[in-house]
């Protein structure tokens, strides 16, 4: 994949499919590194499953026998001298406190890192597809932070209006665009 925002979209979809209703996406730029974390309260995975995750020939999906999401991300992390770790608590063994946290560190200025791409489209795609999930998005840079919380938006909109309504999606696009413009000016 040519832009980093597509990796973020793809990896976050794993949390969606794990049945999470709270998903935090965080990008943090600090010095030469970019740290990407996704934290969810989904069904989690057993330690054996976590171990197999970076193997492309492991997947729980039935439609095809190859799983490329995590291996792709791991490859990108490692070729930029970064790393990928996954911590997970399975629902079966942690009924009150389950979920997964994926942390990927990248050499942000490494020659093999790819453009960040359109993060706004990634966030919008997630909300459009899964308007009932509480996504939190934070992009932290030395110049400022872009922050969006679906829970906060829902508090304003009430229960009846879907975050996937086009009017709301357009507001979110405008809000994020302005947020990015503000930090880009600095």
């Amino acid at each position: 994949m040519e832009e980093f925002s597509l990796y973020v979209l793809d990896i976050t979809m794993n949390s969606v499919r794990a049945g999470a209703d709270k998903i935090e996406i965080k990008l943090e730029e600090q010095g030469d590194t970019l740290t990407f974390t996704v934290t969810d309260n989904g069904c989690g995975m057993s330690p054996e499953t976590v171990k197999k995750l970076s193997d492309p020939f492991f997947t729980t999906r039935k439609t095809r026998s190859v799983g490329l999401g995590v291996p792709f991300l791991k490859m990108l992390a490692e070729q930029t001298e970064g790393s990928l770790t996954i911590e997970s608590k399975e629902e079966a063994t942690h009924p009150d406190d389950h979920g997964t946290k994926l942390t990927a560190v990248f050499g942000y200025h490494h020659i093999d890192f790819i453009p960040l791409g359109n993060m706004i489209d990634t966030v919008m795609t997630l909300i459009q597809g899964y308007p009932d999930i509480d996504f939190t998005y934070d992009h932290i840079t030395p110049r400022g932070t872009v922050h969006l919380s679906c829970e906060e938006l829902r508090a304003v909109l009430g229960e009846d209006i879907s975050l996937a309504s086009y009017e709301v999606l357009e507001w979110i696009r405008g809000y994020l665009t302005e947020g990015y413009e503000e930090i880009d000016q600095k």
Partner: peptide
Amino acid sequence: GMATCGIAAGARPVLNAFVEGVANEGLA
């Protein structure tokens, strides 16, 4: 389709085009 295969092949702009087009053409 928005799995890894779809996303890598360019599904995100396709989805956005449908979301935008359906709203703008009054098909919502």
